[in-house]
């Protein structure tokens, strides 16, 4: 089944994911708000438009694969999987409790999670392996999406994997860079400059697509454009805003891994509801 969900206007859904994220983070008193909020549209586009999935059959062999290489954004990933039907809201509510299937960083036993992560820089290699495996089995429909943070690009293994993806000409492999320009201790430009990101991937032999990471139609179009490229992998460098949608969390490293108080939750949810209503109009 190549279901893509039934929703037409996906923009409000991205804000719904953000609300679920803030609620979960506040309840658990854990997690990483900023890097969750920056990828809401990317996850919405992938899980509700782009990827071939069957939530009723998470192990369907011909499904597309997704790896959240920046595993610290696990909470919004879980909210997206819940909204897509992989598990219930009651399960989401167990996040960070003992015996929960929802771990602080993605665990492969969670329905819908294709690969574990939590130590930065490792997801793209696994994506290379998945794309190689699909090719060996002639599962030509299978596409593999790996979401990385821009700070994560400081890990050397990312570039080992980039070399490998290009070497094997893995055109079913798509890396998406959540280019929010901020990491835990500050601006990426100050901590360890990684720009110009598109030039680096081009030099490594990848097809580079740049887009607005908060424009769902642009992300979907980028994924479609990647599908049309043969003989080499693609990277979508998505310009995003860390903490997007919550005024006091935007563009600051202070909300990379801060705890959300009840008062802050109230303000954040009010802002997100207002934005959701705007897009729902």
């Amino acid at each position: 089944m190549a279901g893509t969900g039934d929703r037409e206007n996906l923009a409000p859904l991205a804000y719904k994911l953000r609300r679920g994220t803030i609620e979960t983070l506040c309840r658990a008193q854990a997690g990483h708000p900023g890097g969750c909020l920056s990828i809401a549209e990317i996850l919405t586009a992938l899980y509700f438009k782009v990827m071939r999935l069957d939530p009723a059959n998470p192990d369907w062999q011909d499904r597309d694969r997704f790896i959240l290489s920046k595993g610290h954004a696990a909470v919004i990933y879980y909210v997206a999987l819940m909204e897509r039907g992989y598990f219930s809201a009651d399960t989401l509510a167990t996040f960070d409790e003992i015996d929960s299937i929802l771990q602080g960083h993605p665990d492969i036993r969670t329905p819908g999670v294709d690969m574990a992560s939590g130590s930065l820089g490792q997801g793209l290699s696994a994506g290379v392996g998945m794309a190689l495996g699909a090719r060996l089995d002639k599962r030509d429909e299978v596409r593999v999406y790996v979401l990385l943070g821009d700070g994560e690009l400081e890990e050397g293994q990312v570039w080992e994997a980039a070399l490998t993806g290009a070497k094997f000409g893995l055109d079913s492999l798509v890396a998406i860079v959540d280019d929010n320009h901020v990491q835990l201790m500050g601006d990426t430009a100050a901590i360890m400059p990684v720009e110009p990101i598109p030039d680096k991937w081009r030099a490594f032999g990848w097809n580079v697509i740049e887009c607005d990471g908060h424009d769902i139609a642009a992300i979907v179009a980028a994924c479609e454009a990647a599908k049309a490229v043969k003989g080499r992998p693609s990277v979508i460098v998505a310009q995003t805003i860390k903490g997007k949608g919550v005024s006091f969390m935007e563009n600051t490293h202070l909300w990379h891994a801060a705890l959300v108080s009840d008062e802050q939750e109230g303000q954040a949810l009010a802002e997100l509801c207002a934005l959701e209503a705007v897009f729902d109009a």
């Binding site: 694969r65 492969i108 294709d114 690969m115 490792q122 997801g123 793209l124 290699s125 696994a126 994506g127 290379v128 392996g129 998945m130 794309a131 190689l132 495996g133 699909a134 060996l136 089995d137 050397g156 293994q157 080992e160 994997a161 070399l163 490998t164």
Partner: peptide, 13 residues
């Protein structure tokens, strides 16, 4: 390092 990850991806397939 990359080799271990690629192997992991192949194992999931």
């Amino acid at each position: 390092q990359n080799m271990m990850g690629v192997a992991a991806g192949l194992a999931t397939m």
